[in-house]
Amino acid sequence: MKRPAPRTATTRHVTQINRTAILDVLREHGPLSRRDIQQRTGLGSATIERLCSALMEEGAVEAAGQVRQSVGRPSTLLRFASSARAIMAVDVTEYTARGRLVDLGGSTLYEESHTFALEGQDAGAARIDGLLGLVDRLASPETGVTAPIVAVGITVPGIVHEGVVTKAVELDWQEVPLADIVSARSGLPILVENDANATAYGEWHSGALANAHSAVALVLGARLGAGIINEARLHRGHRSAAGEIGFLLTSSASFSRYFTEQGDVDSTLAAQVLPFAAREGLHGKRIGPAFRAMMARCRAGDSEAEQARDEFFDSIALALVATSVVLSPQVIVLAGAFAQYSEESAEQLTRRLVGRIPWVPRIAVSDLGFDAAITGVSALTIEHARSATYLA
């Protein structure tokens, strides 16, 4: 078989690489003079001058004062213009969509929430309509944000692959091309991410998983999911389905049935906690609120709830055994509905893992709480937007 001819870099490719080098060094070490940039990147002075001038015209780089480095005229300092552009981040849950405008430095500029109008409506379609309405409002001048929005990031509770929500039971979405739908409405690049992945990235970027080389965010919401950081990168797996630990099997009896909308672990957890939700007047099959109802009864001394709690954490621990043995994470952070009872949950799970697996990861409490997913998708979208800026 004839091998394909090797590809060679064009002038455009070289320019893109050089732009990236300049913007990266300014973002990480700026403000810097042109001479400093030359020393750190190894690029020629003419290239530095040409590309810095172009980046300033585009608004990607801005002046940041002057410094005298030697005899002669003072040098202008340059910095990455993080406030010159913004991204939009939206966290979609069963009942609400929460939107945030963030500059490229990660500072929040504006935030707004929308409650879906579901009564008497096709719930899946109503959520899409509500999401699009929120996107419209966030993109409007009414927010007071003048920086142009360059990308949109959306996090959802479901399996997402290449912008398509392949399955989100809580949202009544299946094979929904969400990125295409929102892009058609906004005209912007769209990043769609699973909420557990976004939570893991948020905690890794600026929370309890910071500096961890290998970590897991265990998210208890309507179902149980996990976001995975492996080798300091977000791990999505084949068809972006990594971390769906609610579909782990609990015993050989699991082979006598099939699991479609809800996995075996999720079904087991739901059966253990939903009776306590019903007693509090909570309806539906959401595990997170039912877990909180059960734990509240435990604190009140309800012995039946205490037995259910023990069975519940047994089931969670079995899922963590599989996760820990396969991935060997340094740390597991508890997120979502665990938040209110995170210290107790960490103690319950650690006690069950010790002596049962070769290496017990540290089980930590979330630093970001319910901000984790939107923080994570913001950071991911900023990276996406920076790439677009670098390669313009």
Score class of each variant (00 low, 15 high):
residue 166 T to G: 01
residue 360 V to W: 08
residue 249 L to E: 01
residue 146 T to K: 13
residue 239 R to S: 04
residue 41 T to G: 07
residue 283 H to R: 15
residue 304 E to T: 08
residue 371 D to E: 15
residue 268 T to M: 12
residue 382 I to D: 09
residue 78 L to R: 00
residue 185 R to A: 07
residue 107 S to K: 15
residue 324 S to I: 05
residue 93 T to K: 08
residue 256 S to W: 06
residue 257 R to F: 04
residue 24 D to P: 05
residue 218 L to P: 07
residue 329 P to M: 03
residue 52 C to L: 15
residue 8 T to I: 11
residue 123 A to K: 14
residue 351 R to W: 04
residue 323 T to Q: 12
residue 142 E to I: 09
residue 193 E to G: 02
residue 102 V to C: 15
residue 188 L to N: 00
residue 88 M to T: 09
residue 389 T to H: 13
residue 150 V to H: 02
residue 101 L to K: 10
residue 219 V to P: 00
residue 126 A to D: 01
residue 40 R to N: 09
residue 261 E to Q: 14
residue 277 A to F: 12
residue 69 Q to H: 09
residue 354 V to Q: 14
residue 328 S to A: 14
residue 369 G to Y: 10
residue 203 E to L: 05
residue 329 P to V: 07
residue 334 L to C: 05
residue 130 G to Y: 08
residue 374 I to V: 14
residue 261 E to P: 03
residue 174 Q to A: 09
residue 294 M to P: 02
residue 334 L to H: 04
residue 135 V to F: 05
residue 200 A to S: 01
residue 387 S to W: 14
residue 242 A to W: 06
residue 306 E to T: 05
residue 339 A to T: 14
residue 112 E to R: 15
residue 321 V to A: 04
residue 281 G to L: 05
residue 187 G to I: 11
residue 10 T to V: 01
residue 253 A to M: 01
residue 177 P to W: 03
residue 82 S to W: 13
residue 23 L to A: 13
residue 299 R to I: 02
residue 38 Q to M: 06
residue 80 F to G: 04
residue 55 L to K: 01
residue 323 T to C: 10
residue 84 A to D: 04
residue 302 D to E: 13
residue 253 A to Y: 13
residue 190 I to M: 08
residue 20 T to Y: 13
residue 84 A to T: 08
residue 313 F to T: 06
residue 344 E to R: 12
residue 238 H to A: 13
residue 242 A to L: 04
residue 10 T to N: 01
residue 8 T to W: 08
residue 60 A to I: 11
residue 79 R to P: 00
residue 286 R to G: 07
residue 142 E to S: 12
residue 189 P to W: 01
residue 116 F to W: 14
residue 340 Q to D: 09
residue 323 T to V: 11
residue 106 G to A: 09
residue 49 E to R: 13
residue 95 Y to H: 10
residue 382 I to N: 08
residue 146 T to D: 11
residue 191 L to H: 15
residue 69 Q to S: 10
residue 330 Q to V: 00
residue 243 G to C: 08
residue 131 L to W: 07
residue 138 L to K: 03
residue 57 E to D: 11
residue 192 V to G: 00
residue 343 E to Y: 12
residue 329 P to Q: 08
residue 353 L to I: 12
residue 58 E to G: 10
residue 308 A to C: 05
residue 73 R to I: 03
residue 188 L to E: 04
residue 353 L to G: 09
residue 295 M to W: 13
residue 190 I to P: 08
residue 381 T to H: 07
residue 55 L to T: 11
residue 375 T to D: 11
residue 192 V to F: 05
residue 354 V to K: 15
residue 315 S to T: 15
residue 260 T to G: 01
residue 122 D to T: 11
residue 233 R to M: 06
residue 125 A to Y: 10
residue 332 I to H: 07
residue 378 S to K: 11
residue 149 I to K: 03
residue 237 G to K: 06
residue 294 M to R: 03
residue 313 F to A: 06
